[in-house]
Nucleic acid binder design. Structure first.
Lengths: 206, 206
DNA sequence: GTTGACATATGACACTGTGTCACATATAAT
DNA sequence: ATTATATGTGACACAGTGTCATATGTCAAC
């Protein structure tokens, strides 16, 4: 988390810095990004950077968590709009994320993020790590899910189901960037896999 | 891939270097590993390192691909032993990998790998990237799968199914390290998710 | 309006680590 | 012996990080 000093900065100075950071993280992935470039572009001295952030990771995960807030908000909204239909919600969220990530201004930022996706990044994006603990995050979603349509016996099975669907969702988003798929191709792949999840992998007898 | 020069080295010198590398990559994850430590531990000069490898990534992915060979071999073997039962195969492979990764000598190496798992690492481990192209890798597996028990209409659906199962498998391996689960806990989680995949997420009418 | 306490700004610097290159040495074929 | 080719070596230039001593600003209390 950025230090208090950063939040005390005038809004436009914050914005300049955030913009400079996004530029650098769009140019190259986190591990290749250099603080020198960010401060040069933002026009602040090196020492100041360390007044605001612990290091470049601190800044990067702050940027991501901002994106995450939007994602979680959107997910809950869609879930309610679809009367708790988990599949429609995941699919519509997927479309939303694809379109966000394909957006000209943000495409490279997300490309660099997803091509280097690991559990820490995934957690930041999927669970709003900063805001609330993960348990309450899931419970929050669980309340709005229409369980009557799902093939589950208890809350634990639902939890596992959501985890599988999240893993598949991220896998497909990553693949979109890896294989440089169009939005349409990515969506088809995702729809196919969601269809398989719905209907089950095994014939009834097995 | 390491350069020819490396493979021309006497076997014991190769082994010393590999061992030194494993030590370093067990101590810290790839991005924190230092070539200085590896060469010091292996007792070779810096210049020599660059005769053998492009950089530390080159060495690291070579190590991983060696592991991968074992995994793929084991997977195919188990698949045949189980007469093409995809689920039994994934589950037994999972157990095999968990026990490998929990092995005292290798635990930290794999911990560092899985806590920083990204698509490139996953691909290296799952698809033997060096050896063959991925298409032929899947076809190779596909031949041995008993499709009669699976709820699929064509080869493409099978492909997606395997991809989903692979994604879930990696997700569970990562979670084992993230949440520091015992082998038993990790297995239970995995079995639960495999059960859900088998039977389908949706009730029949939806 | 001076003082002190505190927050913030700044850039030179020490440090860590990388990849290269000119030169040294070995090996083998003619 | 001579030459060609492969391999070994460590000093060095370069890039980037995080810190620290010092400077500057702000504001409340007297």
């Amino acid at each position: 988390m950025p230090k208090q000093t950063f939040f005390h900065l005038a809004q436009d100075k914050q914005d300049t810095l955030i913009l400079a950071a996004k530029e650098e993280f769009s140019r190259v992935p986190l591990h290749e990004a250099s603080i020198a470039n960010i401060i040069k572009s933002a026009g602040i001295p090196r020492g100041s950077f360390y007044q605001y952030f612990d290091d470049k990771e601190d800044l990067y995960f702050y940027l991501l968590s901002e994106t995450s807030k939007k994602n979680t908000g959107k997910f809950l909204l869609i879930l309610q709009e679809n009367n708790g239909d988990l599949f429609k919600t995941f699919i519509e969220s997927f479309r939303f994320m694809v379109s966000t990530h394909k957006d000209k201004d943000q495409a490279n930022f997300f490309k660099n993020a997803f091509l280097n996706m690991n559990y820490k990044l995934e957690n930041t994006l999927a669970n709003n790590v900063y805001e609330e603990n993960q348990k309450s995050h899931f419970e929050n979603i669980s309340k709005s899910i229409d369980k009557s349509m799902l093939n589950i016996e208890d809350e634990s099975e639902l939890h596992h189901m959501v985890r599988v669907m999240t893993a598949v969702t991220f896998h497909n988003l990553v693949q979109m960037f890896v294989k440089d798929l169009t939005a349409k191709e990515a969506e088809n792949s995702y729809l196919m896999q969601m269809k398989l999840l719905k209907r089950g992998f095994c014939k009834t007898e097995c």
